[in-house]
């Protein structure tokens, strides 16, 4: 089976700071791949390169069978409809209601008639998925951190993407809410049968959600295995994370 995301020899640097060095990875359909690394190790840069929010220095990135560096802006926009993205800061539009936040991605990808007929149902379904139907007419500022994260996830889900990218999904949340978000990520994957790329340094979240983990150390793919196997590793650099 062809991987949904394949990265080959990716390099990215900011001046003299080489953030990613010959990085390789692949995610298969329906799989949850986690990238574990220290703060500043290049995890967020990697995920932003994959969605083309940052340009890479060299390397190949195939997303859903398309080389994203060869796509024009219209093709890239169409591809982005199939890739959901959950930002670390949630990035909810704070001047819009929750309904408007969720409807926003539909503006570009659905026709006016489609939106008239189906937008309301799509918004309600996405909110039901994250258990926050009652917040539909509220503003983001009225919600707690955990609720905002769920709404951001609902917005990422509204176009029913084939791949979802999570950038530090549990950062800044208390342990109970973090667990709730991790469970939500699993239930979403079950319902939509989507693949996921999870960037995190929260071991509990990675343990709960991932099928496979890549350890990103100094911009390289240092190790790759299941969470349990990496946990048992005697390598001091890997052990450092789990101790």
């Amino acid at each position: 089976m062809e991987p949904v995301i394949q990265i080959k020899d990716l390099n990215k640097s900011f001046g003299d700071n080489h953030v990613l060095r010959n990085f390789n990875m692949a995610i298969n359909a329906g799989e949850n791949l986690a990238i574990l690394g220290k703060s500043g190790s290049g995890k967020s840069v990697l995920i932003k390169c994959i969605i083309s929010l940052m340009e890479v220095d060299s390397g190949e990135m195939i997303v859903l069978g398309k080389d994203i560096q060869l796509l024009n802006s219209d093709e890239l926009d169409s591809l982005r409809a199939e890739v959901g993205f959950l930002f670390q800061s949630n990035a909810l539009y704070d001047s819009m209601t929750i309904r408007e936040n969720l409807e926003f991605p539909l503006r570009r990808h659905w026709s006016k008639e489609e939106r008239k007929k189906g937008a309301d149902a799509a918004v309600k379904e996405a909110l039901e998925d994250v258990g926050l139907s009652h917040t539909i007419d509220m503003m983001p500022a009225e919600l707690s951190g955990g609720m905002r994260k769920r709404i951001a996830l609902a917005r990422a889900l509204i176009l029913k993407p084939k791949v979802i990218m999570y950038d530090e999904p549990t950062t800044g949340l208390d342990p109970i809410t973090s667990r709730e978000i991790s469970n939500l990520m699993l239930s979403v994957q079950k319902k939509y049968k989507s693949a996921a790329l999870i960037i995190s340094h929260d071991l509990n979240c990675i343990k709960m959600t991932s099928n496979r983990v890549i350890m990103l150390i100094e911009g390289t793919r240092y190790a790759e295995d299941t969470y349990e196997n990496l946990r048992k590793s005697e390598d001091p650099k890997i052990k450092e994370f789990f101790d």
């Binding site: 929010l53 890739v83 930002f87 670390q88 926003f104 991605p105 570009r108």
Partner: peptide
Amino acid sequence: SMRVTEQIDAMEVSGTN
């Protein structure tokens, strides 16, 4: 404020220019 809270990036990711 939209730039620093990644709201502009979120728009780009959702396919809106």
